[in-house]
Amino acid sequence: MTLKRVILKDSEYEIKRARILRTKQMTETEKYFEIQLPGGESLDHEPGQFVEVSLLGIGEAPISISSSPTKRGSFELVVRDVGKFTGQGGRLTGALHKLEAGDEVGIRGPFGKGFPVRILEGNDLLFVAAGLGVVPLRSLINYVIDNRRDFGKVTILLGCRTPQNMLFADEVNEWNKRLDVNLNCTVDKADPEWKGNVGLITSLIPGVTLEPERTFGVVVGPPIMYKFVIKELLKKQIPERQILLSLERHMKCGLGKCGHCQINDVYCCQDGPVFSYDKTKNFPEAV
């Protein structure tokens, strides 16, 4: 008649012991991790999904997957040191920043609905990423580049605070060199060497030439950015259902239960994080 504790075989909270293969300090506050599941098992994710990353004893947090599923055998994450960036909280991300190749992390997932790649096929794509938004968007950009023939015209618009804050700068450079990709960057604050644009990400949109009926706008960035970018895309006549957003919420359990990520009646962790604008415009709490 006492409290019994037994091992639960089918628990959704079970983590996989994953190994860090490689790390790279990308900026002062962002660190890159290449991670492998036990036995090189595939993560089997869709671009735009996320995983829950654990350090037992410290906690767990949702992190976007940055690599394309076309990259096999391992996957990539970029983690912002939240404590350093905002000045509060961020115990887990601070601890993650101390890890190096060979260390272990716990992984659950992948979770959520990513970008609808099958629907995007055959269409023109306009990627809009600001700040950390390039991290999840990169999973789709690289997927599209690896299957380049299946998609129409590809335009990438990137924005960040300063040239030093640019994530994946080498890779962005590679994208820029490709003749099948149009790329344009802007920074809030330039330095003497910067040759690109200065200003907000929204300032790049009016200059893009596109065929709205066959264009999908794919937008990822900080919460404040969405309403301004959406407005510009609508001005370009892109249909509401062809504007895709990846929304940031605190996806604590990833299982549609704990309530933290709820946006009106949807759970961002299960129903999102990717939504089309024709859906989110009916959620007053979305953007």
Binding site: T2, V6, I7, S11, S54, L56
Partner: peptide, 18 residues
């Protein structure tokens, strides 16, 4: 879950019931 990080990220999911 209970965990032991003496040798990596080792955890055992559990259920408590009465």
């Amino acid at each position: 879950a209970t965990f032991n990080i003496g040798n990596g990220q080792q955890m055992e999911p559990v259920v408590e019931y009465e």
